[in-house]
Design a protein around this nucleic acid. Structure first.
Lengths: 222, 222
DNA sequence: GGAAAACCATAAAAAAACTAGGGTTTTCGT
DNA sequence: ACGAAAACCCTAGTTTTTTTATGGTTTTCC
């Protein structure tokens, strides 16, 4: 009987117990599934570092939003994913996130390239089981809502550089245009130009920022 | 008892019969599944045009490679897909292709944005059934090998414009560099520059074209 | 061995992006 | 409804990036 080791990291204790319960009941060939858990960034990091020294987890489930207990600086699950990739490159990584936020999904798919990505509303015992099996045998596994985000992106002929994406992102979270220059290495003039350019790219010439944001959302950029 | 109408277009008569046989046996809620078939571009086009006038097919399965019988000019399944999208926008489209050719997949995902994409070696009764159900309820459905191609693309931080992609494509099919200028609106000098630039992007400075092509293949561009 | 193709380097020309500056319009708080 | 802040628009000069032509060197291949 072989053992399949899973680490689940989520800051909600109860949901994590739910995962543990479901995952350990999966019947999977001659595997015995064991789930370890962690519910803070720090605890998760420790587990991963430990595992790098001894056995490596087969799969790491990782919540996108993780807030460490006694700190202000919020470490994201994304950071932990990047770290895990370095420390334990052989472990499969599956991200879980509450919403199908395209900007975040796109960003994580590029920075971590996880073996799976599940939007939480897609998660149930059946999909969890499928995710585990798929990720082991023929990754990747993307849940339904993650797939529609990915589809939007792939169906796109517009290519934006990093600055364009950042501008869109900041606009979408309500950053004032004049404050964007604090986050991006560009003059205010350039940012205005780029906004105009973006609007024309998305066919929203002479329209307001809201129209631009909606169009960019529809195309899967934010 | 409702009816689910499917049109399958593939130039291999026998494989198409296989699809018909499998698809019509699918047990799917209270649907009765009926499969029409066509095995040339022309026949497929006619079926689609007819259906635009009366009922619309719920799903159209479409082979990527279609050669019409009495013509030299080969129409691709991609063209037919684009046509179908215009004529019967409500029909779900599922592409089937023999190999996981990234350039082709990327191109079709952009031009047609099909509701499904299956690489033929992934196709079996089970996956066909899953494709049908997924496409009806929560598209898209991408088969395993299609997903790994998509994953490569999404994990990429390199963005290429249309000319770069064309250059890579032509190199990959063996077009001589000096002949590429016939296909792209650029001077030979620019093409050389772009090739150099591409090689440096993919970390293959001073290496030959083969190295570039392999790197681009690995990243899912061709 | 020799021609064709690929590669490299340079410099000039063209296109695109950035910036500063100033003005007009819209938005928003009070 | 007012005034200030922000957003928007436009111009012109600068910088950066791309394109192009040209001429030479190396590699490939019959």
């Amino acid at each position: 009987m072989k053992t399949l080791r899973i680490l689940a990291i989520d800051d909600h204790e109860m949901t994590m117990l739910g995962y543990k319960f479901i995952l350990e009941r999966i019947v999977f060939e001659d595997y015995n599934i064991i789930v370890d858990t962690a519910n803070t960034y720090e605890a998760g990091r420790e587990r991963i570092e430990e595992s790098a020294q001894s056995f490596a987890y087969d799969i790491i489930f990782l919540d996108v939003q993780l807030f460490p207990p006694n700190e202000n600086q919020p470490h994201s699950g994304e950071d932990l994913g990047i770290l895990a990739r370095q420390l334990v490159p052989n472990s499969k990584i599956i991200f879980m996130s509450s919403f199908s936020d395209n900007y975040r999904i796109n960003s994580i798919l590029r920075s971590v390239d996880p073996d799976g990505y599940m939007v939480k509303t897609d998660i149930d015992p059946k999909s969890l089981e499928e995710a585990v099996k798929t990720v082991i045998f023929e990754p990747p596994y993307y849940s339904s809502k993650a797939l529609s985000a990915i589809r939007k992106k792939m169906a796109n002929d517009i290519t934006l550089d990093e600055n364009d994406k950042k501008i869109l992102y900041h606009l979408s979270i309500g950053t004032k245009t004049k404050d964007i220059e604090n986050h991006i290495q560009l003059s205010s003039s350039s940012i205005e130009n780029r906004k105009r350019h973006l609007k024309s790219l998305f066919g929203k010439e002479k329209e307001n920022d809201l129209a631009l944001i909606l169009a960019a959302k529809n195309r899967g950029f934010i």
